[in-house]
Simulated assay, not measured.
Amino acid sequence: MHSPTPALLTLEGVHTHIAEYHILQGVDLIVPRGQLAVLLGRNGAGKTTTLRTIMGLWHASGGKIVFDGQAITSKSTPDIAQAGIAYVPESMAIFSDLTVKENLHLAARSGPMDTARLEWIFGFFPALKKFWNYPAGNLSGGQKQMVAIARAIIEPRKLLLVDEPTKGLAPAIIQSLIAAFQELKASNTTILLVEQNFSFVRNLGDTVSVMDDGRIVHAGSMQELAEDEELQQKLLGLSLASHQ
């Protein structure tokens, strides 16, 4: 797939083995700089493995991953994070025993939290300000998701990897996430989003790639997929219209 926007991240023929399982089988993926790229696919297609491989949590057994002009295929997770990539896993991975404030403080690795950026985050997620000194484990699922995303963006990142952020969330919280991701895009943060909520990604996505059995089987513009129900049926076995 060719994009008029230069790529911030590219995967070329990436393979990932986990124990005896060959999960990623030659993944080719382009994430254009400054855009929101969506990765769709059925459960078990390899979407989470793709994010974890980019982040170095699982190492590619073949192929090449290039981020911002540098090969990161064999780099460690801390080095990849230092290069400007943040990861919000589906499990959220927050520290339940620590307060919201302590969770964000730990994520601000370069020094004290920037007050202006913190107020910007509170604008999307006012519940975080309300529960600032509460243990994160006491929050609702939606509030925990807010903490997880806030941790990832408490410092400016070049690339944000987000795994199914709307899973189990109320519509009002999903609207807050939409606003947050739109603002992040406007502030030159590139986003790679794995998601199953099609109306959510339809509103946000610039490009879309569809995975099946550890490979990319389609790549193009989100608008093209959103307007072509026949293509949706072919790739996903459903239509976006039925998920409005």
Rank of each mutant, 00 (worst) to 15 (best):
W132C: 04
D28L: 02
A186S: 08
K234N: 15
V201S: 02
T166Q: 02
S209G: 08
L29V: 04
V31N: 00
L238E: 15
G41V: 02
L128C: 08
M113E: 11
A19H: 12
V147A: 08
N138E: 11
S242I: 14
D97L: 15
S176L: 10
E183V: 08
K185M: 06
I18V: 08
M55F: 10
L39Q: 01
F181D: 00
T115N: 14
A19P: 07
D228W: 08
S76M: 13
L40D: 02
L238I: 11
V162P: 08
G56S: 06
A172N: 10
H2P: 14
R202K: 12
A71T: 09
R109F: 11
L51A: 06
E224P: 13
A116K: 12
Q25K: 08
E229A: 11
H218P: 07
L24K: 06
A186L: 08
L139F: 03
L118Y: 01
L36V: 06
I178W: 04
K101R: 15
N138V: 15
M146S: 03
L24P: 04
H243A: 14
I154L: 09
L139Y: 05
L98M: 14
Q145R: 09
L139A: 03
V201G: 01
M222K: 12
I94E: 06
H59G: 14
M1H: 12
G111A: 08
T190P: 01
M222H: 09
I173D: 01
H218Y: 13
S91T: 14
L192W: 01
S74E: 14
E227M: 15
A170P: 05
L9A: 00
L184Q: 02
T53W: 09
H105T: 15
L40S: 03
T99A: 12
S96M: 14
L159C: 03
G26V: 00
F200T: 03
N197D: 09
A60M: 11
I85P: 04
R33Q: 05
L104G: 02
S91Y: 15
P112V: 10
